[in-house]
Design a protein around this nucleic acid. Structure first.
Ligand SMILES: [Mn+2]
Ligand SMILES: [Mn+2]
Ligand SMILES: [Zn+2]
Ligand SMILES: [Zn+2]
Lengths: 156, 156
DNA sequence: AATGTTAATGACAACCATTATCATTAAATA
DNA sequence: TATTTAATGATAATGGTTGTCATTAACATT
């Protein structure tokens, strides 16, 4: 899974440089893992995936990098009620584009959907504008999740 | 804060009885606390509030009751990214009615809003219907939160 | 009112995801 | 290559939450 040339995803090297950050092997490996999955991974998931190729990278380093990447806006951290956080590349870096989530309360399967983004975006824009004014809040983010029971979980 | 007659909120006594549950003093006290605040309380907040009147009720009991009340649908558990869960009476029992949340990412102040519920409800209904069909999900809940910086936090 | 059944409690230990510490390593730059 | 210091890895610590288990107390029955 690591890029053979050891160069890693080049598209973000500049991002790090200009902030005084360095492009390290662990950081690269973590971004590789996140860039090569469609799933939402826990810190441990990422640690295990990275571990196969770089067995000496520690879990602490994974946590540290995730925190940093979240602060940089390259990664988004989610809580789906599972007891541990899940991470995915943010919209701009993932190819998935802006989407929201459908979460099964039994098996914690997560579906990315962007089916109703037209309406949602319009609706959210309206709501944000209204709330910002009324409550003097500078709104930067939103979290939209639907919870329920997936097909598999409902048939047993 | 405890009801003087020792009877507690009567409106839910039946709820417990019919499920084989019992109305205990700790349970009553916890519901009293939740019923007498407009805020979103952590387990420890509730424990401390209850502690003033019943110093021998333990934190474990608070957790156990909250879990039970959440399962019964009388209480809702939220994660605002603060590292601990917050609880409030659910729509049917709180008098607040259905509402969503505006959360300050710095001080974790939470505002309940229901200003745009007309539009939101319509929009959510649509989305839920569409998602349910397309992804064969039995949707039961949604979580809508806006994040940002509150006025106080932005002026310092 | 006294009894029996068992849900619920309280004290405490254990769990487990996440953070803090700190000596060591290795990017980046010259 | 030498210098600087961001980043790492091993480990301990933190803190919210859950598990254990002997004891208590709701509540239905007598
Ligand atoms: Mn996603
Ligand atoms: Mn609320
Ligand atoms: Zn499921
Ligand atoms: Zn604030």
């Amino acid at each position: 899974m690591p890029n053979k040339d050891g160069a890693g995803p080049r598209w973000m090297h500049g991002k790090f440089k200009c902030c005084g950050y360095r492009m390290t092997k662990p950081r690269e490996a973590i971004l590789d893992v996140l860039g090569n999955t469609q799933e939402h991974l826990s810190a441990e998931d990422i640690y295990l995936a990275v571990h196969k190729f770089y067995p000496n990278i520690g879990l602490t380093t994974v946590y540290r990098n995730l925190e940093m990447l979240v602060n940089m806006g390259m990664v988004v951290k989610f809580d789906f009620g599972e007891g541990r956080s899940k991470y995915e590349l943010s919209d701009n870096y993932s190819g998935k584009g802006h989407h929201h989530h459908l979460v099964c309360k039994k098996c914690y399967k997560v579906i990315d959907y962007s089916d109703f983004m037209k309406d949602e975006v319009k609706f959210l824009k309206n709501t944000e504008d209204g709330l910002s004014k009324k409550y003097e809040f500078n709104i930067t983010d939103h979290l939209i999740q639907f919870f329920g029971i997936c097909k598999k979980c409902s048939t047993k």
